[in-house]
Write a protein that binds this DNA or RNA. Structure first.
Lengths: 132, 132
DNA sequence: GATAATACCTAGGAAATTTATAGGGATTAA
DNA sequence: TTAATCCCTATAAATTTCCTAGGTATTATC
């Protein structure tokens, strides 16, 4: 049960945006430099975050990416659910599971799913960047 | 972030063993039948669980697999850590991470790791089989 | 002692997923 | 007009997952 690179790297990119919150848009090359990621790869991560309205961007020269809300209003849970396309640890939590009622293990997954989300929703991007 | 089939199916097999706890050993073909898994595949899951001393087996005719402890003494956490080879959600939790101190996200992973284990260690195999 | 039922071990391959790389298009400030 | 930027999509390499397969060792039962 591993978090994907997308999740890990995307969160780092969000930290970078948080560090410079209020300073205007950050360009892709700049964020790539700071996070040590290739521009082309980072671009895809940012496009996911943008689709989910966690960040926005301005195009053209001197454009770039920026957070749509302040770092204290964005939780790590939101970010990872966006990047990981949901935090459901088993498929039966996403789709419709036929035998919810009879399955012995279904309860475990729902319980764990709730705990994971609760934990991550309790951490804001601000806390992350400022260190505790 | 998905649990592997190994984890899901192995837990089902453990449930089967728990259901018949005290009735002697269950044969591989029997467990395979009940869990709807191929014998050869199930065999590998059981070998992992055996290596970690959650189950044991007797060989030869009328042999089979059985739990080493009663279902109430075995937690779902133990079972999944065995099958998943640990529940570390990122690699830096397993190996030695060089920049623990400077990494913004390291704290998130340790916190989440603790919560996941706490949650799963709080559920016994007995609860699972008896339904709450 | 032979037989059949069982667990044990290891190799490997198909399929899926992850992790990127690459190229070109659209937009816009200067 | 130009250069800097974001946007979109295809695809390739690497890794991992998931499972099949074949053969070996052990032992209760007849």
């Amino acid at each position: 049960m591993k978090l994907s690179s997308k999740g890990r790297y995307g969160l780092k990119a969000m930290c970078e945006l948080a560090k410079h919150y209020g300073e205007g848009a950050l360009s892709l090359p700049f964020i790539a430099e700071e996070t040590a990621l290739s521009e082309k790869y980072l671009e895809q991560l940012l496009s996911v975050l943008k689709k989910d309205n966690l960040i926005d961007a301005t195009r053209g020269a001197s454009g770039g990416y920026f957070l749509t809300r302040s770092p204290e209003e964005i939780s790590v849970g939101e970010i990872l659910r966006s990047l990981e396309n949901g935090l459901e640890i088993v498929d039966c939590l996403s789709g419709d599971c036929q035998n919810k009622s009879t399955c012995h293990t279904y309860g475990v997954w729902t319980k764990l799913y709730r705990e994971i989300n609760k934990c991550l929703d309790g951490i804001s991007l601000k806390e992350l960047v400022e260190g505790e």
